[in-house]
Structure formats: C-alpha cells, structure tokens
C-alpha cells in the first residue's frame, strides 16, 4: 500500500484522537516506527492491521472509522491541500461528482505510483446517482466507506444537500447511492483558485 494511504490514517488518528492513540497503535503492532513516510510503499498487511488496531483502541466499528477518515481528509485544516485538490474537480458539487471517474488519473498525475480505487458514476433519475467503487486490491481496504465520508464532507464544502446510502459490496466493488436534494442548500466553503496552497 502506498505510504500516502497509511500517512492519511496516521494524520487522522493524530489530529482527531491525539498522538498517544497513534503511538499506542504502532507499538502494539511492533512496527518499529511511529511515523509513516508518505512517499514509501508498505506491505498491505500494515494498513489492514493499523486500521484494526485503531478500531480496537477507539472501540469503533471499522466501517465507521473508515468513513471518519474520509470526512477528516476533506474537513480538517491540517490536510487543506487535499481538499483543495478535490475542489479542482468542479465548480459545483454536481460537476465534482461527474469528475470522480477521473480521480485515479488525477491521483497518478500527482504521484505516479499511487493506486486509487477506480470510481464509476452512473446518473440514474434526476439528481440521483449510483457510484461504484472498485478497490485496487480486493480485501485490503474497503475504500467505499472512505469515499462515503469524503463525499459527505465535500457536499458540505460545496454547500449541497445530499443523502448518501451505502448499498453494500460485491467482492471488490462497493455501491453508493447519491441523492442530490439541493445543489445550493448552504453557502459552502469558499474556494479561492489562486490561494497559496498550505
């Protein structure tokens, strides 16, 4: 697994629950390090075990933990740069949704060896979409839950009112139903195209 993914988990744990929780998780795993290098690769098992340790330590079901990570990645000021990169996807939330198919490609533009899940958005009826998340390696990490949290936070960011429904998985493919109730429900957060990235 790419170090960026593990680094995301680390920053989520540190920023949300404090460094102690994170260090405790790495100690329990006997990792031999307490800080993930974002630009190195790690064994897939490290990611799986890290998530399991954190879920145990925080007494939180794994799917909830993953969704919280997705929300964190968009909403926490410490990872503002990622939110900015996602906002480049479109001027409105709808445009952003339609840009999701490009997400793995955009990821690779930035970091060529980063394997992100393939996303496939199919518009159904008016304002209703079905998003399929194909995780790169089955059984490693159910990215769909992370995407759920990420979409929820992005909707807030754009000021859109949405209802998300996790429809379950078929092997490595997870299905999310998105209903866009009100594209401009709230003001949303300002996105300054020319701001200096943090």
């Amino acid at each position: 697994m790419h170090g960026l993914i593990n680094r995301a988990i680390e920053r989520f744990a540190r920023d949300t629950y404090g460094g102690d929780v994170w260090i405790q998780a790495t100690r329990r795993m006997d990792l031999g390090f307490t800080e993930v290098a974002a630009m190195l690769h790690y064994d897939d098992a490290v990611t799986t075990r890290l998530l399991q340790q954190l879920a145990d330590l925080l007494d939180k079901p794994a799917p909830d933990l993953l969704e919280d990570i997705g929300t964190y990645l968009v909403s926490h000021p410490n990872v503002e740069s990622l939110r900015r990169l996602l906002r480049f996807g479109g001027v409105t939330f709808e445009e952003f949704l339609l840009s999701l198919d490009d997400l793995p490609g955009r990821g690779r533009l930035a970091v060529p060896d980063l394997d992100l899940p393939r996303l496939e958005l199919v518009p159904h009826t008016d304002q209703c979409y079905a998003l399929t998340v194909f995780s790169p390696k089955p059984a490693t990490l159910p990215f769909g839950r992370v995407v759920m949290g990420l979409l929820r936070a992005m909707a807030d960011d754009y000021g859109a009112l949405v209802v998300l429904d996790y429809k379950g998985d078929r092997g490595a493919a997870e299905l999310i139903e998105i209903r866009l109730l009100e594209p401009a429900f709230a003001e949303g957060r300002h996105f300054d195209l020319g701001a200096t990235p943090p």
Binding site: R106, L109, A110
Partner: peptide, 11 residues
Amino acid sequence: MLYLFEAKSAA
C-alpha cells in the same frame, strides 16, 4: 494545469 501545479508541489 493549476491542479497539477498544486498536486506536484504537495508531492
């Protein structure tokens, strides 16, 4: 292009 500039800077 702007996206790429920011993404590469972050990387």
